[in-house]
């Protein structure tokens, strides 16, 4: 069974479902009308191509990046990057830096990559409303309020725990140095390095003077 077909089907369903949750996404999708974005991840044998029409179609690319970039049509952008770099592509201002650092190879229409990035970056989904469609407003509101309270409590608990642990390690058990002590030590090391450098220069001058 072609597992890649299953994977592309799952990705396509997920993308279209998520886009359907944001009513404004259709407007952004129209800007990409009939553009294509091919994405290749280093180490993954096949790339995927997103075809932007009234909805997003996802297909598996059988050609390699090098073969595809030779035959790019208008409104087709082809990128090759690493998995770790993918999240950085959300910031369109970072594209040039990534290309210069050779973390991103981009061929074709850069506008397509920027608009596709904007399509997903500007997603504004009211998850509470989505849940309310299935459970009703009251349950959805309660569920989200509880989730928010729980999240806030967990965040507070984590912050407090971190503070207590830091205090125990630094002050009570003295297992680690205090942040200020580390900074002071770093400054002293820096001063010492400068002194040594000055001494080396002076020594060199004296040697040249004697000889």
């Amino acid at each position: 069974m072609p597992a890649m077909a299953l994977l592309s089907g799952a990705i396509e369903t997920l993308i279209n479902q998520v886009l359907s949750f944001d009513p404004d996404s259709q407007q952004r999708l129209e800007k990409l009308n009939h553009a294509c974005l091919s994405v290749f991840i280093e180490g993954v044998p096949n790339g995927i191509t997103l075809h932007f029409a009234d909805k997003v179609e996802v297909s598996i690319e059988n050609d390699a990046f090098e073969a595809l970039e030779q035959n790019l049509a208008a409104q087709h952008c082809c990128i090759k990057t690493q998995l770790a770099v993918l999240p950085e592509l959300k910031e369109t201002s970072q594209l040039t830096r990534l290309i210069q650092q050779k973390k991103l190879y981009l061929e074709g229409d850069i506008n397509v990559a920027q608009q596709a990035s904007a399509l997903f970056k500007e997603l504004d989904i009211d998850w509470e409303e989505q849940l309310a469609k299935y459970t009703g407003d009251v349950f959805a509101h309660q569920a989200f309020s509880t989730a928010h309270r729980l999240f806030d409590s967990l965040t507070e608990f984590a912050t407090k725990g971190q503070r207590i642990a830091a205090n125990a390690v630094v002050e009570e058990k003295e297992l680690a140095a205090h942040k200020l002590a580390v900074l002071h030590f770093c400054d002293e090391v820096s001063d010492l390095r400068n002194d040594v450098e000055r001494f080396e220069v002076r020594l060199a001058q004296l040697e040249s003077h004697i000889s």
Partner: peptide, 19 residues
């Protein structure tokens, strides 16, 4: 539901391009 995967695989193999 597997016929959808067979068809999707066919469309991917077709490698159809714009125009």
């Amino acid at each position: 539901g597997v016929h959808r995967l067979w068809k999707r695989y066919t469309v991917d193999c077709a490698a159809v391009r714009k125009g």
